[in-house]
Design a protein around this nucleic acid. Structure first.
Lengths: 114, 114
DNA sequence: CTGATTCATCGTAGATTGCCGATGAACGAT
DNA sequence: ATCGTTCATCGGCAATCTACGATGAATCAG
């Protein structure tokens, strides 16, 4: 297409005046990216799968299943929790983690729609 | 302190002698993490969805749809290509990108199995 | 109350990511 | 052969991620 009008957008970067504005990642895309990013580490995938299989685990159980320090596992759990993929419930001195089914369902729907 | 016996695993970090060894992210988990990581950015999700909807796009088309520099879009495409989610075919002076259906299928299966 | 256990958070070092402009390589057209 | 177009790659900078030890908060047992 020869751009007979609008002289020549120099690099079309600032997307200032394009007649058809670039969509800018839709909320749906942002949501999927967010969930995918949370799953974007092998340890976190393993944790999710483990919770999916066993239903409920406390943090110590999860640490035992990984060659990582407790602080590191706790960080990964925080990432998964912030993304809404897992939820933690305080149970005495420990914390019981389990899958957040709705979010996982949403993830499956978003990926399925690709 | 006699280090002859293991007295008490200090932090259970090195996972040295646990009777049931920690699984260490399975290949399946690594594969899913890899794909998820590639999708872990809104721009890349948008690109995948765009290719999914339009079938084939060249790089310029994709750049026009985003408020990003050409170099940046090219980088994102490289990430998606390295993950196997898209494939590019040279067509004269341009490159036609399209979805790699098998990999997307695999992704759906892996996510569905969560 | 004291001490032990469990987990989250802080601070930090090193690697990776995201973005850009600039440059290079490949191709079609003149 | 030379030019313009299209895309990939390089170099660099700021921000984020991953991992760790150390420390703090909460709870239970004695």
């Amino acid at each position: 297409m020869s751009p007979t009008q609008q002289a020549r957008a120099p690099v079309r970067k600032g997307r200032r005046n394009s007649p058809a504005a670039p969509p800018d990642p839709s909320p749906t895309d942002v949501a999927l990216a967010r969930l995918a990013k949370a799953l974007g580490h092998p340890t976190r995938v393993t944790i999710v799968r483990m919770l999916s299989a066993q239903g409920v685990c406390n943090c110590g159980d999860i640490v035992c299943q990984h060659p990582l320090a407790q602080a590191t596992v706790s960080q990964h759990l925080k990432v998964l929790k912030d993304a809404g993929l897992v939820q933690g419930e305080i149970d005495g001195p420990r914390v019981c983690y389990c899958i957040h089914p709705e979010t996982v369902k949403k993830l499956k729907a978003l990926v399925g729609a690709l």
